[in-house]
C-alpha cells in the first residue's frame, strides 16, 4: 500500500497526508471487522467454557472458574475424547496403507479403467453425504456393524480414502519419473526403488495428507451420528448432544477441544500446506 501511495502522490518521509490517514483508518476498521467476525464466535466459546454462572443480561459471566474444564478428565467426555483419537489414528493408518500403493499406481501406470477409478473416488465428494450414509446404515444394520467401532471406522474411511487418494496421486505425479528410472537402470528392483527413492521423496506429502485425514476423522459428524450413536459416541457427537441439551459450558469445552488440533496444525503447517491439500479438505 505504502509504495503505490508514494508513487501517486510523492510526499516526503514523515509527512502524512490526509488521504493517507483516511486509508490507514479504513484499513484499521477493516482489520477490526475481520477480527471481530472471525474471532467473535470462537471467543464466545472460550468465555462460555470458563463461565461458572452467567445470567442475562450481564455482559460478562458472573462467576469465572475452571470446574467445567476439570470435567474433561472424568467420565463420558474423557471416553469420547480417547475413543475419538484412537479412531482417528486407526483411520489414518488404514487409509495410508490402502491408498499409497493405489495412488502410486494411478499416478504412474496407464492401467485399464484408470478414468473410471478416478471418477469413482470423486463421487463421494460430489453428492450430499447424509442420504447415502443413511442407506449405508441400513446395510450396516444387516451386518451388525451399527453401534460398533468397526462400523464407525468404516464410515470414516469412505471420506478419508477419497481424500487421501486425490492428494497422494498429485504428490506422486510431482515426483519426476526419471529418478526411479535411474535407480532401476542401476539394477534396483521396482519395489526397491519405490521404497528407497519414491517414498522418501513423497514423505512431506504423506505427512500433510495423513494429518488432514486425522483431522477429517476427528471432526466427522454425520457418519458417526448415524452409525455410532447412541452406543458409541465420538467427540463431535458428544458435543452435539451437549449443545442440544443446553449444557452450554460442556459443549463449549468440547468444541474447543475439537478445534485445537486443527488450529495447531494450521499454525505449524502454514508453510508446508499446499493449497490443493487444503482445498480438498475444506469441503468435507
Amino acid at each position: 500500500m505504502s509504495t503505490e501511495t508514494a508513487a501517486v502522490q510523492p510526499a516526503g518521509p514523515g509527512v502524512i497526508t490526509g488521504a493517507r490517514w483516511r486509508r490507514l483508518l479504513l484499513r484499521m476498521i477493516l482489520m477490526a471487522g475481520a477480527l471481530f467476525l472471525i474471532m467473535g464466535p470462537l471467543l464466545s466459546l472460550l468465555i462460555w467454557s470458563f463461565a461458572e454462572k452467567w445470567y442475562w443480561p450481564s455482559p460478562w459471566p458472573l462467576e469465572w472458574g475452571t470446574s467445567y474444564w476439570s470435567k474433561v478428565f472424568e467420565g463420558k467426555m474423557m471416553d469420547a475424547l480417547i475413543s475419538s483419537f484412537l479412531i482417528a489414528i486407526a483411520v489414518t493408518v488404514i487409509c495410508l496403507i490402502i491408498s499409497i500403493p493405489l495412488s502410486y499406481m494411478l499416478a504412474r501406470y496407464r492401467i485399464p479403467g484408470r478414468t473410471i477409478l478416478l471418477l469413482l473416488f470423486l463421487l463421494p465428494q460430489a453428492f450430499p453425504q447424509l442420504p447415502v450414509f443413511s442407506n449405508a446404515m441400513v446395510l450396516m444394520y444387516r451386518w451388525d456393524l451399527v453401534g460398533t467401532w468397526t462400523g464407525v471406522i468404516l464410515i470414516h474411511l469412505v471420506g478419508s480414502v477419497v481424500f487421501c487418494i486425490w492428494t497422494m496421486v498429485s504428490v506422486f505425479q510431482s515426483i519426476p519419473e526419471s529418478m526411479e528410472e535411474a535407480s532401476t537402470m542401476l539394477g534396483a528392483s521396482k519395489l526397491r526403488s519405490f521404497f528407497t527413492i519414491t517414498l522418501p521423496l513423497a514423505v512431506p506429502g504423506v505427512i500433510a495428507s495423513s494429518l488432514l485425514v486425522f483431522l477429517y476423522s476427528l471432526d466427522e459428524f454425520t457418519g458417526s451420528l448415524l452409525i455410532g450413536a447412541p452406543f458409541k459416541t465420538t467427540l463431535p457427537v458428544f458435543m452435539y448432544n451437549a449443545a442440544m441439551g443446553y449444557e452450554m459450558q460442556i459443549a463449549s469445552v468440547t468444541a474447543i477441544l475439537l478445534m485445537l488440533p486443527g488450529i495447531i496444525l494450521l499454525l505449524m503447517m502454514q508453510k508446508f500446506m499446499k493449497s490443493e491439500y487444503l482445498s480438498a479438505f475444506g469441503r468435507v
Binding site: 462460555w48 459443549a251 486443527g262
Partner: peptide, 14 residues
C-alpha cells in the same frame, strides 16, 4: 477451514 461443522454450529448459536 479447520473448525469442524458442528463446532461452527455451536459457536454461532452461542
Amino acid at each position: 477451514l479447520f473448525v469442524p461443522f458442528v463446532v461452527v454450529g455451536h459457536a454461532m448459536r452461542v
